[in-house]
Simulated scan of single mutants.
Amino acid sequence: MTYCVAMRLEAGLVFLSDSRTNAGVDQVSTFRKMTVFENPGDRMLVLMSAGNLSISQSVRQIIADRSAVGGRSIWTASTMDEAAQIVGEAVRTVYERDAKSLREFGIDFNVSLIFGGQIKGERCRLFQVYSAGNFIESHNENTYFQIGEAKYGKPIIDRVISTTTPLDEAAKCALISMDSTLRSNVSVGLPLDLLIYEADKFSVTRFVTIDEKNQYFHMIRTTWGKQLKAVFEGIDDPVWNAATDTSPNALSTMESRSQPVRVAPPAAIAAPNADPAPLQTLAEQNRPRQQH
């Protein structure tokens, strides 16, 4: 599995991918998931992949082969939309060639792609390409795409990223998103590829491969965990069954007590005269007992 994230901002684009692939706990390998198609001064395009590795490598090879023989290719496409169509056509070509054989061996045709960049004469654009070869484009309402193990790294992006976010701040957010994913899922792993593209440069402006020795990413991993714990500890515990308007942190109030759905035990084993214990408040639980 893998995790890739890309962000489209007013200032440019941010791409981040891991390099873990595995076919079981004893078959873990490293394959880079990011490919750059760059013609300085004319276009800068990035392709990232997740899913079945053989499928994604076949798609990338078809794109590269078509680029080499001339004609309609991502090197000659006049718009990013046309280039995304070419990527989608490559996915469908692999599907028509391999899907039936894979299905006979119980293997689903599973591939997801993020494709983005800028062609001269257009703004920066970002697309997500699906297994059917169809795609969607990022707009201001949704400034980023994720593929692979997306769920762990999504909350920080939703809270932080907007179209006006500066590139370095977006890169920091992407790395925190990746760190959250690395911590929660062993199918995602180092090294990482991080590419920052400044709008209208038409060439890669910043790129780094990040391993466990990278100073900044080590700081992110350490600091983010400490800061999260500090914020968590700074939030008050809930107050149960508080009187109305007596606590700003009431989880429940005296006027709105609720009960769980209870299943009564069989009559033969039910304890005599046993009634459910009253639900306590935190204040009752913590109140010192009076001496008699």
Rank of each mutant, 00 (worst) to 15 (best):
D98E: 14
M219I: 15
E122M: 13
E255L: 05
V46M: 10
L228I: 10
E141D: 13
K226F: 06
I156P: 13
S58K: 14
D179W: 00
L126N: 04
A90E: 04
D98C: 08
F135S: 07
L182N: 06
S112N: 15
F15E: 06
S203H: 08
Q215C: 11
D18N: 01
W240M: 15
Q118I: 04
V263P: 02
C4G: 08
S184H: 14
G70D: 00
A250L: 09
N52V: 00
P260M: 10
N241P: 02
T163H: 05
D168I: 12
S247E: 08
P166V: 11
E82N: 14
S19V: 03
C173I: 06
D98P: 01
N273C: 05
V129R: 09
F217T: 04
M178A: 04
V208Q: 02
R92T: 11
A230Q: 13
L228E: 07
T30K: 15
T244M: 14
N185M: 08
G51W: 05
P266L: 10
R257Q: 11
K201W: 09
D65F: 14
R183Q: 07
S258Q: 15
H139K: 15
I63S: 01
S247R: 13
T163W: 11
D18A: 02
R287M: 05
K120T: 11
D108F: 09
S58T: 07
A11M: 09
A174C: 10
Y144Q: 07
F217E: 03
I74G: 04
C4V: 05
I63R: 12
C124I: 05
G234V: 04
S78R: 14
